[in-house]
């Protein structure tokens, strides 16, 4: 597992859109669903997000990501459906328990919003290489040091995860149990996490040195190995997104 991102390598029109425009899309798509309280409008936005995912040829990949949030969604439907404070009209009854129309309606709205949130981020995450996004932000003036931080996280976590097997072996070889009662298991937590923490913190010293050697703190202008190709339609796309966003706000204020 050398790459922990969810990026799906395809060639599609969505993949070619520049990362910042996609970032703007994510923001507008999500906030619009929260500004508008109309089921149909929110559903429309969700549908639009799905269409983009399909155009990007990554619709299938979003399903497991939505699945991760399943517990949250289920909990919303159950809890709000049964217990929302505005409950008044009984929709239907299962045995002694009543599902209320108001709660159910709200639960449905929130579910649409959550799914749209996940799907909208999906547009960015599934079709954008993280390093492209960071490069784009760098050229917009993000400090290269923060750029370093963002990218190195993606590389370093898999390296740390790869250590876990070795550590578990080493501690089991010293008679540590990973199964048993809760206290027994809890006692094993530090022997397992401790070596990773100490290693990675001690290693920060060497890696700092390595970065210093490579001019991490060099003053003066830095250059970039690759030239960014400019995306032709980013301006019109961004303008369209902003017009849509303004329309949502106006509509909400008017109604």
């Amino acid at each position: 597992m050398n790459n922990m991102t969810l990026y799906v390598n395809r060639d599609s029109p969505v993949h070619r859109v520049d990362p910042l425009t996609k970032l703007l899309f994510v923001f507008i798509s999500i906030t619009s669903t929260y500004i508008s309280a109309n089921h149909l409008a929110v559903f429309g936005i969700l549908l639009f997000t799905f269409i983009i995912l399909m155009t990007g040829n990554v619709f299938k990949s979003i399903l497991p990501v939505i699945g991760v949030s399943f517990l949250l969604i289920a909990s919303i439907i159950i809890v709000q459906g049964f217990f929302h404070p505005d409950r008044a009209t009984v929709l239907f009854e299962i045995g002694p328990i009543a599902i209320y129309k108001e709660g159910f309606s709200i639960a449905l709205l929130i579910t649409l919003r959550v799914v749209n949130m996940v799907a909208a981020f999906g547009v960015l995450i599934l079709t954008t290489k993280p390093d492209d996004l960071v490069e784009a932000l760098l050229q917009k003036g993000l400090s290269p040091k923060f750029g370093y931080v963002l990218l190195s996280v993606l590389q370093i976590i898999p390296q740390m995860v790869a250590l876990t097997g070795k550590i578990t072996d080493a501690q089991r070889a010293r008679g540590m149990e990973t199964e048993g009662g809760i206290w027994m298991r809890f006692k094993s937590f530090l022997p397992l996490l401790g070596p990773v923490v100490l290693n990675s913190l001690t290693e920060t010293r060497e890696r700092s040195i390595a970065l210093e050697i490579r001019g991490f703190n060099a003053k003066g202008n830095r250059t970039f190995l690759y030239e960014r190709e400019t995306y032709r339609y980013s301006m019109p796309l961004r303008i369209a997104l902003i017009i849509f966003f303004l329309a949502v706000i106006v509509w909400r204020v008017m109604s």
Binding site: Y148, L151, Q155, A218, L225
Partner: peptide
Amino acid sequence: QMTGAKFTVYDEIAFGLENQG
């Protein structure tokens, strides 16, 4: 000694050069 911020060997070697401008 690997910076961790580059995804290929080629880019890794570039790290110091980019910083030097």
